[in-house]
């Protein structure tokens, strides 16, 4: 068999392996996405959908402050959640990877991700009960005399952020932990030989090497958080709307799918921008 024939055969095998995933992506992502993009250029006229391309929905989004506010709310909450989750997950992953004995690490990880095993909706309602005026947190703080009035931590942005951070710390712990345990101990030994103290070793060696794991987790957190409807709906008390809630509002009664599609495209653009920023940043670090 010639080299060229061998290459062709390998290429066919590669395509055969990739084809199912590719077909799946085209059928369930590319085609629906293109359809949604086209629909975002239609408009609702009365009870009918006018299938003529125009930019009315996008113009409405940028001219109505309540809609624009949905995007800024989403971005503010998502960035807060992402930063807080990274700050909390890194030390946790570090402790599990570096301080917990090897034989207990698996158990520690299971305990860390245990809340994943419960339903997302149930978990959100549980947080609502915990954070409410008569909930465990307020009652405990009142009981030990730390506060005299219940804290307003339910049905607002604080509650939404708490619910999100609880969920995403688990996700980030996994991605960062998997990065940390892959690091050879020789890096630390080399840094120590060169006179670096523990902080310098972490800051100049460990942190840069674990950044791919951090950024992957942070990006996943950003994507999942900005598109989430359930947590803000249950914990936020509708005191401010995020973009997915505004999208649902378009569909619920009026079935304004063109406007909902336009808002979804805007949401996707925000995710794309986050990806571009993350990918670019990671590339610089690697260089």
């Amino acid at each position: 068999m010639t080299t060229a024939t061998l290459e062709q055969s390998e290429r066919r095998k590669a395509w055969a392996l990739v084809a199912p995933a590719l077909l799946w992506t085209v059928a369930f992502f590319v085609i629906p996405f293109l359809y949604m993009a086209a629909m975002s250029l239609w408009s609702r006229q009365g009870r009918d959908i006018l299938r003529v391309w125009n930019l009315d929905n996008y113009a409405r989004f940028f001219s109505e402050s309540a809609l624009l506010r949905g995007l800024t709310n989403s971005l503010e909450i998502t960035l807060t959640v992402t930063v807080l989750s990274v700050l909390l997950a890194y030390p946790l992953a570090w402790i599990i990877a570096e301080r917990v004995p090897k034989r207990w690490q698996r158990m520690a990880l299971i305990l860390a991700i245990l809340p994943f095993w419960t339903s997302y909706v149930v978990r959100s309602y549980s947080w609502l009960l915990l954070l409410s005026k008569g909930g465990v947190i307020n009652q405990a703080l009142l009981g030990i005399g730390l506060i005299s009035e219940p804290l307003e931590i339910a049905s607002n942005r604080t509650a939404t952020v708490i619910g999100f951070v609880h969920f995403f710390v688990m996700l980030l712990t996994l991605t960062i932990y998997s990065n940390l345990i892959q690091l050879s101990p020789n890096y630390r030994r080399a840094a120590a030989d060169l006179g670096a103290n523990a902080f310098q070793t972490f800051w100049h060696v460990i942190l840069p090497l674990t950044l791919p794991g951090v950024m992957t987790g942070a990006f996943l957190t950003f994507v999942l958080c900005i598109g989430d409807y359930i947590t803000p709906q249950i914990l936020g008390g509708n005191n401010e709307l995020v973009l997915p809630q505004i999208i649902m509002l378009q569909i619920g009664r009026r079935a304004d799918f063109p406007m909902a599609a336009a808002l979804s495209i805007i949401l996707m653009l925000a995710v794309t921008a986050a990806y571009v920023l993350c990918a670019r940043w990671l590339k610089i670090e690697r260089a």
């Binding site: 309540a66 809609l67 401010e240 709307l241 509002l249 009664r253 009026r254």
Partner: peptide, 13 residues
Amino acid sequence: DQKMQDAWTNMMQ
């Protein structure tokens, strides 16, 4: 209907 929905959205925001 759209005006009512917009008024409701404005209120929540």
